[in-house]
């Protein structure tokens, strides 16, 4: 292993440790120090927690940007301005959901059930009004409670963001879309905003421990289209999922072709 490569790995490793230390301790300390007084004083505990998550993760990405001088973040203004929306994204990296939380002060999402069993963190997730994806939570009357809670959050200006692939895609390929979010949108009488995420998998590669803080690339989020409430009403759920997937595939192809041409 060359010295340059070794020093790059060592730098990445140390920065990663620092970032994850901030991430974890931030939840433990900041949340306890700030959340409990806020929670005791205000009734809307979920909104307070979402705002705290947002601030905490915004700082996290400021640190990521500071520690990764070659990495640029480009989030289009129309994505930043989204409110009361159901946002559908492709899923590349564990960073995707936390990047979205860092963008929106009020936000909710559907979270893998395993996270809810993590001590403290799981409790925070539940208190913040995030929705567990487990079959027991999404079946029976609990499902209606979750859908009504999403409806309330949208009405209050919050966003629901969902990764219909369910899991991270590999090598730029989209996994099949689950139908859940399309049905949720119909239930909430709203449309869907489609947002393409790029390069979070370069910043934090799936299967890797470390951030790539020495790379030079742009992490971007771009609004690529919408499915309106009427689009969803006038087509089957499967057709709507196919339509959304086609839009993502087209845009991914375009960006790959553009990238090749530039290279």
């Amino acid at each position: 292993m060359s010295l340059t490569r070794f020093s790059r790995l060592a730098v990445n490793f140390c920065i990663t440790l620092g970032l994850w230390a901030y991430f974890t301790l931030g939840y433990l300390l900041l949340m306890f120090v700030l959340f409990i007084p806020c929670y005791l004083r205000l009734k809307a505990g979920d909104a307070v927690l979402q705002k705290l998550f947002h601030v905490h993760l915004k700082i996290f990405f400021v640190l990521v940007g500071f520690m990764s001088p070659g990495v640029r973040f480009a989030v289009s203004e129309d994505v930043r301005r989204l409110r009361s929306s159901i946002i559908v994204c492709n899923h590349l990296s564990y960073l995707d959901p936390i990047l979205l939380v860092s963008l929106f002060p009020r936000q909710t999402t559907i979270v893998k059930n395993t996270f809810f069993s993590v001590p403290i963190f799981g409790w925070f997730l539940r208190k913040a009004g995030y929705v567990p994806s487990s079959p027991t939570e999404m079946y029976g009357p609990a499902m209606i409670n979750h859908l009504e809670s999403i409806k309330r959050q949208l009405a209050a200006g919050g966003n629901l963001f969902v990764f219909p692939e369910g899991t991270r895609g590999r090598e730029g390929r989209l996994a099949p879309f689950n139908r859940g979010v399309f049905s949720i949108a119909r239930y909430c009488n709203t449309g869907l905003k489609l947002v393409l995420i790029r390069n979070t998998d370069r910043l934090f590669r799936p299967g890797s421990f470390s951030f790539d803080t020495r790379g030079e690339f742009t992490v971007s989020m771009e609004w690529i289209g919408s499915l309106t409430e009427n689009d969803l009403k006038n087509s089957s759920i499967s057709a709507a999922a196919d339509q959304a997937r086609t839009l993502f595939e087209r845009k991914i192809r375009e960006t790959q072709t553009g990238g090749d041409a530039q290279e």
Binding site: M138, M143, L147, R179, G180, S183, R186, Y187
Partner: peptide, 22 residues
């Protein structure tokens, strides 16, 4: 599944011509 159940509920609302309560 539960997603189908939600879809069915929305179709039932159309059949009845009214919204269902929670």
């Amino acid at each position: 599944d539960s997603i189908d159940a939600i879809e069915l509920l929305m179709e039932i609302e159309k059949v009845l011509g009214t919204e269902l309560t929670q």
